[in-house]
Write a protein that binds this DNA or RNA. Structure first.
Lengths: 336, 336
DNA sequence: TACGTTTTTGGGAACGTTTGCACAGTTTTT
DNA sequence: AAAAACTGTGCAAACGTTCCCAAAAACGTA
């Protein structure tokens, strides 16, 4: 803001002290006498002094803010993660800056670099579905920027990661479809680049194996853009239907809702005949028709855990070398 | 970030120039010879120089960032508005910082003040449902912080505002219910504090009047927390049902979905018998059961317009004194 | 050659903090 | 009584920019 507000200098002048004394008093340093502290604090209160975070950032070379990159905030899963992140960050006096990649690699890179130049102290990121090359993240990391990945994590990058138990979530959902009598279960999923895609595919396969159902690759459809384009989804559905699946297991929030939408739009007559199980954190699932079985991720908790890990890295005295990958359990909410 | 990156000083030293020259060359000022400019630019490129926005902010006393306050990002309407805001902001080289009030006055005030202290150049805000006292905003505004309100706007605050045509949206929705034969139409709405609540109530009333239907105050239920607490909603529904409405007109995104949820939960047998029309920007409306008629706000556009107005205020040479209130039309999407 | 212009560059202060170091005054130790 | 230690404060530099002002270089003209 370009309007006047009181500064340490002003306080110093008014009280006949030096800026250093005022600064130290405000930060409650031991060197300053109780008397002076009280004086300064009282006056600061009176003139409604607010420290200038910009100046502080410049001097300290850190900003007490952490960057978040998600593909989009208009996604139940991610907005819940963000709420989890905020809940911890604010507690520990960090501010958060949210950016959306819209599933675009270019946008993701641009945003990350912008955040980095704004002196964020750390980064929480779920990769875009397009992202394959994460060298730009490696560079930043090497230069000292703490990074914690969540949900969509890279394989060969040594740092903290927080993910859902995707294998088990998928296994459970697929098993549930099988147990309700389905035998031709399609799998609609995200870009092959993503970690979640691989893990969820494995869970799906494992459930098929357990019940001696043949895995048919043609029943698996990948969506490069994670369902951002409805044409992509409709195409996938169109290719799937001739194979006459009696169940579909879908591996992401956006794909799940998008797929039902596409089904209803293109083939309303079969929409209700196909059993659907899918990952989604929508809290409106109960309203959906056809209804579905959903795999819910502990989104809020994921945000919290990731943030705690990140802040521990930021505040670590010495470089962190032991990394953990936290795996959180999903919840299967069966169709009514 | 606390790691080394090249600065203007480094470039100056390397090239045997002064920092002033380098700074000017980088900003392409007329005083600098083409030759020097090329030299500097090439070297800057080579060492991957990035200007430090923090330093720039401190010096220029502005941050090229704008603050956004919404009640929550996990809301279709608001996340679409944010996308609209971003689309314009990025174009004009502004960064955005999003904060959530969670419909709490205290949180809203805290967030705004935090943003202000971070030197945002302007503020875009939709008031929380609890907010009645906006003096803190007046203070900031008086000190020179440009503010543009959208969606939920205060009455007596002279600045730009962007709203939907709430009156017409409500009128249309209510009329639609009437035309499909409903006569006992309840109205479920937000906190009375909000501008949108008043405007939408007027539209509802006007439609009743047009068709000579008596307005019955007991059919109107207010939710103080805008549906953030499901108990509140269930209570409202519980009080409404004995009056045997054959239609309900609901005045906000969260309330609309929440109400259907509450209806299904508490009275599944009547849920499908009551016709519902409500404001919502959910793109999943087609999946809902019972299905409903929805009033869609031009959220993305609202974000764009508000941002353009804000940036025009920020960049105005002299204080702006002529303010506009832009009203954007809603769209009625009839139940299938 | 000397001068005035114009063009290009550099010096240095400022933005609001934090912090290492020095220093004065007081208290403790020997 | 002198030396040592501790307390509380101030000076000044630094963070990376921008920009006012002055100075130097280049050019033109008499």
């Amino acid at each position: 803001m370009r309007f006047e507000t009181s500064t340490i200098k002003d306080i110093a002048k008014a009280l006949g002290l030096s800026t250093s004394t005022v600064s130290r008093a405000l930060r409650d340093r031991y060197e300053i006498s109780e008397e002076t502290k009280k004086l300064v604090l009282a006056y600061a209160e009176k003139v409604n002094y607010r420290a200038n975070p910009i100046a502080r950032s410049l001097k300290e070379r850190r900003s007490y803010s952490i960057g978040i990159i998600v593909s989009e905030i208009a996604n139940n899963f991610f907005s819940q993660v963000i709420n989890g992140i905020e809940s911890i960050a604010y507690d520990k006096d960090y501010h958060v800056i949210i950016s959306q990649s819209h599933e675009s690699y270019k946008q993701e890179k641009l945003n990350v670099e912008h955040l980095a130049s704004r002196s964020i102290d750390g980064l929480l990121i779920a990769l875009s579905s397009e992202t394959q090359d994460i060298d730009y993240l490696r560079d930043l990391y090497a230069k000292g920027l703490p990074i914690v990945f969540f949900d969509r994590v890279p394989k060969d990058f040594e740092t903290h990661k927080v993910i859902a138990n995707n294998f088990k979530g998928s296994f459970d959902a697929t098993e549930h479809l099988i147990l309700s009598g389905k035998r031709t279960i399609a799998h609609l999923t995200n870009s092959e680049n993503l970690s979640i895609t691989k893990e969820r595919l494995e869970g799906y396969k494992a459930a098929l194996i357990k019940y001696h159902i043949e895995f048919r690759p043609e029943l698996v459809k990948y969506c490069q853009h994670g369902g951002m384009h409805s044409a992509e989804l409709e195409q996938a559905v169109k290719e799937l239907l001739p194979l006459q699946p009696d169940g579909i297991f879908i591996s992401s929030d956006r794909l799940t809702t998008g797929c039902i939408m596409a089904l209803k739009k293109t083939n309303p007559e079969v929409a209700h005949k196909i059993a659907i199980a899918g990952f989604t954190n929508s809290n409106l699932v109960e309203l959906f028709s056809p209804s579905l079985t959903s795999v819910k991720q502990p989104a809020f908790e994921m945000g919290q855990v990731a943030t705690e890990l990140l802040i521990s890295m930021i505040e670590a005295k010495r470089p962190v070398t032991e990394f953990e990958t936290k795996v959180l359990d999903t919840e299967l909410v069966k169709k009514r």
